[in-house]
């Protein structure tokens, strides 16, 4: 399932769906890396409200995306993580160090202003 990316001003918004495969995540990484240059975007919000599980691969890929976008001159904010998903991540020992998070899309967009 492809992740839709919306352009809003100088910000890109990627909305992740629940049934996301490893390859979907990798293509999101590619698409965002290209689109921040194409659209001269200064920030990217990745909305994971619909995501019902975060495992080591998803965590690592989100971290990689943030690092790649930083090198491309854009900020990344992860928004909307469900409490149950956060709970399972912490038990698995997964963290997102150095990545900005916000509770929802509005808050994420405010952080990028």
């Amino acid at each position: 399932m492809k992740v839709p990316i919306l352009k809003q001003g100088n910000i890109l918004i990627a909305t992740i769906q629940s049934a996301l495969t490893d390859n979907d995540l990798l293509s999101l990484q590619d698409n965002l890396a290209h689109q921040v240059i194409q659209y001269r975007s200064q920030g990217v919000v990745i909305d994971i409200t619909e995501l019902d599980v975060m495992d080591s691969f998803a965590t690592r890929t989100l971290r990689n995306i943030a690092n790649i976008l930083k090198l491309r001159g854009a900020k990344t904010i992860i928004v909307g993580m469900q409490p149950d998903v956060a709970f399972a991540m912490v038990q698995l020992g997964l963290t997102l160090p150095d990545i900005k998070t916000a509770r929802d899309l509005d808050e994420g967009l405010t952080l990028l202003k």
Binding site: D52, P83, V85
Partner: peptide, 26 residues
């Protein structure tokens, strides 16, 4: 997750089961 829903696991337990299975399958 669908199967586990039939027993009264909490939603955070369901997320944990899904995450554990994801790791093992990976």
């Amino acid at each position: 997750r669908e199967l586990a829903k039939r027993f009264s696991f909490s939603s955070s337990e369901l997320a944990g089961i899904a995450a554990a299975i994801s790791e093992l399958a990976r």
